[in-house]
C-alpha cells in the first residue's frame, strides 16, 4: 500500500470498522451499507477524493451472504491516489442508500446497477431502468439470469421445444 494511503485507511478502520484487502497493489476497503454515505462524504471533504470514477457491482452467486458487492472507485487528483470501497449487500432484492447527494456520478450509474442487478438505491431522484426496456423482467447481469441461447431442437426434444415456439398454432 502507498504510504499516503495508510492514514486514510486507518480513519475508515477506526470510524466504521472497515476491513481492507490488498491485491496486486490495489486497496479494497469493505464498508457496511449503513456507513457508506458517511464514508464517501468524509473521503470527499477531508481527504480530497473528489472524483468517483467507477460505480458498479459484482454478483457472487451462488454465494448468498453477501451476494453482491457494490464497488465505489474513488480518486484523489491532488494526491494522485485511488481507493476502492466495497459494500457487501445480501438477499434477493437488496437496498442501499443513494450516493447522489455526494457524487452526481450515481445519477446514471446507480440506475445502471438497479437495471442490471436489481439493487435498489433508496432516495434516488430518478429510479428508472436505463439501458433495458421497462418491460423486461429480471435483471440481466445477475449470474442466475440465463444468457438467452436458443436450445437446439433434436428428435428427442422436438415436441417439447416446438410447444414454446412463438408461431401461430392451429
Amino acid at each position: 500500500m502507498e504510504k499516503s494511503l495508510e492514514p486514510i485507511v486507518k480513519v475508515l478502520q477506526e470510524k466504521f470498522g472497515a476491513t481492507f484487502e490488498e491485491f496486486r497493489g490495489e486497496v479494497q476497503c469493505m464498508v457496511k451499507p449503513e456507513h457508506i454515505i458517511e464514508a464517501l462524504t468524509i473521503l470527499r471533504d477531508a481527504h480530497h477524493f473528489e472524483l468517483l470514477s467507477m460505480l458498479s457491482a459484482i454478483d457472487y452467486f451462488p454465494q448468498t451472504s453477501p451476494r453482491f458487492h457494490v464497488i465505489y472507485q474513488l480518486n484523489s487528483l491532488e494526491k494522485n491516489l485511488t481507493l476502492q470501497l466495497r459494500v457487501p449487500v445480501e438477499g434477493e432484492s437488496p437496498k442501499l442508500p443513494t450516493s447522489t447527494g455526494v457524487f452526481k456520478t450515481g445519477l446514471w450509474r446507480e440506475r445502471e446497477i438497479f437495471d442490471m442487478f436489481g439493487i435498489e438505491f433508496e432516495g434516488h431522484p430518478d429510479p428508472r431502468r436505463i439501458l433495458n426496456p421497462d418491460e423486461l423482467e429480471g435483471h440481466p447481469l445477475r449470474r442466475d439470469f440465463p444468457l438467452g441461447y436458443e436450445e437446439p431442437q433434436f428428435s428427442f426434444n422436438y415436441e417439447e421445444i416446438d410447444l414454446g415456439k412463438p408461431y401461430a398454432k392451429e
Binding site: 470514477s53 467507477m54 458498479s56 459484482i58 454478483d59 457472487y60 472507485q73 456520478t105 446514471w108 450509474r109 445502471e112 447481469l141 449470474r143
Partner: peptide, 12 residues
C-alpha cells in the same frame, strides 16, 4: 471471468 465491467467514459 465472473464479471467484466467496462467503465466507459462516454456514459458519464
Amino acid at each position: 471471468p465472473r464479471r467484466v465491467h467496462m467503465r466507459t467514459p462516454s456514459f458519464d
